[in-house]
Amino acid sequence: MGNVWLAFGLTLIAGLSTGIGSLIAFFAKKTNTKFLSTSLGFSAGVMIYVSMVEIFSNASDVLTEVHGEKIGVLYTIIAFFGGMLFIALIDKLIPSEKNPHEVKMVETEDEEVNKDRLKRTGVLTALAIAIHNFPEGLATFVAALQEPRVAIPIVAAIAIHNIPEGIAVSVPIYYATGSKKKAFLYSFASGLSEPIGALIGYLILMPFMNDTVSGILNAAVAGIMVFISVDELLPSAREYGEHHLSIYGMVAGMAVMAISLWLFI
């Protein structure tokens, strides 16, 4: 039960980091693009490495032990790409102009604009991010529940990539309403879908949890994390700053994740 509360707590921290993005939007005059690019690349490196080296491998081991090598590996592959398909379908349902992948700078809205349209944009962006974050919450929760030793780096990676999403919500709301409080609350609320995703996943899946379900979930989580990294984090990192900074950040993230896993062997 202790791991369950830890997993919920870490998922909550990851989700509510969107609020950090709104605070940055209020107090920063200009986006530090180099730092943001490197950080997003770092997050991608952490998630790709832990997904392929640790989570996918563990899922394959569990499913192979239960179903034999041939079927176990097949189940792992299907679940991995099933996770990718799941997050891709959710991504597809979000209109491109409201998609949280779209880069938003702190200074983007610093001009005369239609306030009603801006408010609508902010609200729709918050809704889009909430939908988008739902499977991330489930993925973070499952990873933290199954592998507590790798949970903190994953949560840090998710939290870093949620910060620009907080900016994307809070900037239009703030410029439309003039209220920092409203902008912060919208941004904060959009991140709540991550712990909600964890809660729903827990209530639905835990009664059926066994080695097969655990292995399939882990493989799917690996697929979700890899897809988020290559579809969202790395492209955003390149948009925010120099191409090489995002790559350096990614390599650093992989190295940190590798060392942290080695330390816990």
Rank of each mutant, 00 (worst) to 15 (best):
L6Q: 10
L10V: 06
S17Q: 05
G19D: 08
L23T: 02
K29S: 14
T33V: 10
T33M: 07
K34F: 10
L40C: 11
A44V: 08
G45V: 01
V46D: 05
E54Q: 09
K70C: 00
A79H: 00
F81G: 05
I90D: 06
K92T: 12
E97M: 11
K98T: 12
K104P: 09
V106H: 00
E107K: 05
T108A: 14
E111R: 13
E112K: 15
V113S: 11
R117D: 12
K119F: 15
V123G: 03
L124M: 12
L127R: 04
N133I: 06
F134D: 06
E136D: 07
A139C: 03
A143F: 02
A143E: 09
L145A: 08
E147K: 13
R149M: 15
V150A: 10
V150Q: 02
A156Y: 08
A156W: 06
I160W: 05
H161T: 02
I163R: 01
G166V: 08
Y175F: 14
G178H: 11
K180M: 10
K182H: 13
K182Q: 14
S187A: 07
F188W: 13
A189L: 15
S193C: 04
M209C: 03
D211R: 14
V221E: 02
F227N: 09
S229I: 02
P235Y: 07
A237E: 02
Y248T: 08
V256C: 04
I259A: 12
I259L: 11
L263A: 14
